[in-house]
Simulated assay, not measured.
Amino acid sequence: MDSNHIRVAVADDHPVIRLGIEAALDDVPTIRRIGSARDSSELVTLLDAQPCQVLVTDYAMPGGRYGDGLNLLSFLAERYPALRIVVITAIDKPVLIRTLLAKGIQNLLSKADDIAHVAPAVQAAHVGRRYYSPAIAAIVQSLSGDKPITKLSPRESEVISLYVAGNSIMEIAKQLGRSKQTVSTQKVSAMAKLGIASDADLFKFASEVGLVPPPEIS
């Protein structure tokens, strides 16, 4: 491996954004892009074929065999433990940023920020330093001023997980041996703690943070 260059892979399902990332990286003499992928299937094929030190990946990148979001990040961490990851996302919800930070992702870029942040984020990831683009840094700063997040109780978490998996309140009550009113109250309480007001937002949140399980891979 060429020790004078950082070997980088790019993954994003949006061609224009992917080309922008590629151009930003190709302009830096110390970075060598080994290839790009449009989904998780192409990404794993690329990473299996060539040594890579840093990955720049979109958070939401549906359509691949290995999923996207938190599920893909967990898979990559297990399969390529030495790989450093820079996540770029259009999702600006504090709960997602908090979740990514808790998962150990320390290099985060917002698609709302200048693409020029990609190269310094890669360089920071390569040496084990954190890097946030301005929009992400503002969210992280706001989180640091928060009181510790109120976590869901085990029963609330159980109810929410079953609900976003497609079960009705009645079905959840039957599965858990609780009354319909109890399950409904636990769901409402959990949504209040998460700052979510509607079922539509609950399902969107569940998708963003990986509560909805990916389809099984045969």
Rank of each mutant, 00 (worst) to 15 (best):
residue 25 L to P: 01
residue 173 A to F: 06
residue 61 M to I: 04
residue 139 I to H: 13
residue 71 N to R: 06
residue 151 K to N: 12
residue 161 S to G: 11
residue 205 F to I: 05
residue 29 P to M: 00
residue 15 P to G: 08
residue 25 L to A: 01
residue 74 S to V: 00
residue 201 D to E: 15
residue 174 K to Q: 10
residue 208 E to V: 09
residue 4 N to V: 00
residue 38 R to Q: 09
residue 198 S to R: 11
residue 130 R to W: 13
residue 173 A to I: 07
residue 160 I to V: 14
residue 150 T to D: 14
residue 152 L to H: 08
residue 136 I to S: 12
residue 146 D to L: 15
residue 145 G to C: 10
residue 125 A to G: 13
residue 88 I to N: 08
residue 164 V to T: 10
residue 40 S to D: 03
residue 127 V to K: 14
residue 61 M to G: 01
residue 49 A to F: 02
residue 185 T to S: 10
residue 201 D to A: 15
residue 31 I to F: 04
residue 213 P to G: 04
residue 93 K to P: 01
residue 186 Q to I: 01
residue 208 E to T: 12
residue 171 E to M: 08
residue 183 V to S: 08
residue 135 A to C: 13
residue 154 P to W: 08
residue 29 P to V: 06
residue 102 A to W: 08
residue 1 M to Q: 05
residue 52 C to E: 02
residue 70 L to W: 00
residue 99 T to C: 14
residue 111 K to M: 08
residue 200 A to M: 09
residue 22 E to S: 08
residue 127 V to Q: 15
residue 55 L to F: 08
residue 11 A to F: 01
residue 132 Y to A: 13
residue 205 F to K: 10
residue 111 K to I: 02
residue 48 D to N: 14
residue 65 R to P: 00
residue 53 Q to W: 02
residue 51 P to Y: 07
residue 170 M to A: 12
residue 11 A to I: 04
residue 111 K to D: 07
residue 89 T to N: 05
residue 213 P to Q: 06
residue 176 L to I: 07
residue 175 Q to E: 07
residue 177 G to R: 07
residue 156 E to M: 07
residue 55 L to G: 00
residue 125 A to C: 14
residue 55 L to M: 04
residue 163 Y to S: 05
residue 78 E to M: 09
residue 6 I to E: 04
residue 72 L to V: 02
residue 107 N to M: 11
residue 85 I to R: 12
residue 37 A to R: 00
residue 123 Q to F: 08
residue 122 V to M: 10
residue 192 A to S: 13
residue 177 G to T: 07
residue 84 R to C: 12
residue 178 R to Y: 15
residue 71 N to Y: 09
residue 27 D to W: 03
residue 52 C to K: 01
residue 114 D to F: 12
residue 144 S to N: 15
residue 47 L to P: 04
residue 96 L to A: 05
residue 199 D to K: 11
residue 189 S to A: 15
residue 140 V to K: 13
residue 135 A to I: 05
residue 87 V to N: 09
residue 45 T to L: 02
residue 199 D to V: 11
residue 11 A to G: 04
residue 92 D to F: 04
residue 48 D to A: 04
residue 4 N to Q: 12
residue 170 M to I: 07
residue 165 A to I: 01
residue 155 R to L: 13
residue 110 S to L: 14
residue 111 K to W: 06
residue 109 L to V: 15
residue 125 A to Q: 10
residue 58 D to A: 12
residue 67 G to Y: 04
residue 98 R to C: 06
residue 125 A to P: 11
residue 161 S to V: 07
residue 92 D to I: 09
residue 193 K to L: 07
residue 87 V to W: 12
residue 218 S to V: 13
residue 169 I to Q: 09
residue 206 A to Q: 08
residue 102 A to Y: 10
residue 178 R to K: 13
residue 45 T to E: 10
residue 17 I to K: 05
residue 177 G to Y: 09
residue 178 R to V: 04
residue 184 S to Y: 11
residue 143 L to I: 15
residue 148 P to L: 10
residue 159 V to Y: 04
residue 167 N to W: 09
residue 204 K to S: 14
